[in-house]
Amino acid sequence: MLMLSQNERERYSRQIMLFGEEGQERLKNATIFIAGAGGLGSPISIYLAVAGVGRIILVDKDTVERTNLNRQILHYDRDIGRKKTASAQEKLREINPDVAVEVIDTTIDETNVRDLVGEADGIVDAMDNFPLRYLLNQVAFEKKIPLFHGAIRGFYGQATTILPGKTACLRCTFPNPPQKEVFPVVGVTPGFIGMVQATEVIKYLVGTGELLADRLLLWDGERSVVEEIALERNPSCEVCGGRTRHGGDAL
């Protein structure tokens, strides 16, 4: 268990007021896997870095394009053409040199996802498609670590926190993916949903507050309304249903 340095006590003094040095040490000793360094991954990784999450693993396969810059705030105009991982690592290290930022420039797939996630304490879903989200959901279930889900389109977004064996999984809630498209988006929407996800990560690691467990938060930015919908496990879910019936740790 790594202890806080004097610099860290000072850097995090205002949040140590919230959850104590013990809470801050939990953040310092945590590893969080963030899948995607785009619209959601940018604000999430920035805020987890400044909060002092000790080890951040950030995976992305893409190169920065001009069309990304309205929302992917880790990447600057000068980064166009660079790998998002390189751009992200540079910024996050400057933002907080006290946290370890590991970036992996690869396409997440069925063959590598388990190794990529490794021994992480949680997975943040900052993807832009459901097939990869389902893969993250599967791995979160296998490793029994939480999946912090978020997704956006236009002015709308959704978020929930999946605790394997305890809550509905992503497949229970969304058995079928929406149609693929080039989605419209203004940067504030992934900013908003990313902050919900990052807040969930911090609460989970520190062990405080109440998580978005079995609750789907829906954000309507057009009307500035937040609503929530209760979620339930699907007993016949192809991911989490069967094992539960065979004496898993559910309900």
């Binding site: 498609n129 459901f130 956006i152 236009g154 993916p177 929406p178 498209e181 989605f183 919908i229």
Partner: peptide, 10 residues
């Protein structure tokens, strides 16, 4: 009654 589409962007 509520009807909604999941969103998928990120």
């Amino acid at each position: 009654v509520a009807v909604f589409p999941p969103v998928a962007g990120g």
